[in-house]
């Protein structure tokens, strides 16, 4: 096996990997609890997924197949550069196909295709503490988690209802893991929250700037917080994907011109591509093919 000059396999040194691996094991043993770890400088700025990259670097092996998505897309800057990074420092095979990947590093989406046992989903997390905007002091939020004191979060959701008539939180929607810890699912749209519940895949979360790692093992209860009279609901889209006609998937709005033209397309580019290859065509998909 060839290795890139001057770098260890998967970039990180072995002592750092061991430290991160120990944090990952404790995170799995305490689902939803944020394990502090000594985050390292990475060859990319904070906010570009340094937490996710460190988790991936610590778990990845030469036999893994890596997929990286940024807002559901395989072809955006963040996804392309992280994929290229691991292809270079770990010589791993990369893919855009959800089904073929063993490790999927994601920024703010969960693939539409249901994940399988043995797959690992690594989230890049900007702010791991769900209570942070309600209580800025770490000493206090730590105590709140220790005492399972989550009343403040319910007050926040209640205030949403008082102000907007419904729970207005649409992303980073707080969840309770295995009936104990309130956890930030990272800024995924709440559309993806139900996919976390009883997932076949292991879910790992890395927050580089905030020095936290947390996890949700497979087959673990993940419940979105709500009220009896205001149950949790996911977003619904009035029209299917304009390219592949998919329904029940998360859509992005794309501006087409400066005259108000727009379309809604799949956020998950791999899912959209697979559907189009299989012959599914949306309202604007035909037009595109005819051009």
């Amino acid at each position: 096996m060839t290795t890139t000059a001057q770098y260890n396999f998967a970039y990180l040194d072995e002592q750092t990997k061991r430290m991160i691996r120990r944090a990952i094991l404790k995170a799995i043993a305490i689902p939803g609890y944020q394990v502090p770890f000594s985050s390292r400088e990475m060859p990319m700025p904070y906010g570009w997924g340094t937490g996710g990259v460190q988790v991936t670097a610590s778990i990845i092996g030469p036999d893994d197949v890596l997929k990286v998505i940024d807002q559901g897309a395989d072809d955006t800057t963040n996804a392309v550069s992280i994929r290229a990074f691991f292809a270079k420092v770990a010589q791993v095979q990369t893919t855009t196909r959800t089904a073929e990947a063993t490790i999927i590093q994601t920024r703010h989406r969960i693939p539409e295709r249901a994940l399988q046992a043995g797959q690992i989903l690594v989230y890049q997390v900007p702010i791991p503490e769900p209570l942070r905007f309600l209580e800025p002091r770490e000493t206090e939020t730590r105590k709140m988690h220790a005492l399972e004191e989550y009343g403040l979060m319910h007050v926040k959701l209640y205030e949403d209802i008082a102000r907007h008539g419904r729970i207005a939180t649409t992303y980073a929607y707080p969840v309770k893991v295995e009936g104990r810890y309130v956890m930030d699912p990272s800024p995924t749209p709440k559309f993806d929250n139900p996919k976390m519940h009883m997932s076949e895949a292991l879910q790992l979360f890395g927050a580089g700037r905030e020095h936290r790692i947390y996890a949700v093992p497979p087959h673990t209860e993940v419940v979105s917080l709500d009220f009896e009279d205001h149950p949790f609901e996911i977003q619904h889209f009035e029209q299917p994907c304009a390219l592949c006609g998919a329904e029940q998937v998360y859509l992005d709005e794309v501006i087409l011109d400066d005259a108000g033209g727009h379309m809604f397309v799949c956020s998950d580019t791999d899912n959209c591509e697979e559907r189009r290859n299989a012959g599914f065509v949306g309202s604007l998909g035909v037009q595109e093919a005819a051009e």
């Binding site: 691996r21 778990i59 092996g61």
Partner: peptide
């Protein structure tokens, strides 16, 4: 390096 990754 690789064995400890596999064992981990």
């Amino acid at each position: 390096v690789l064995n400890s990754q596999t064992a981990f």
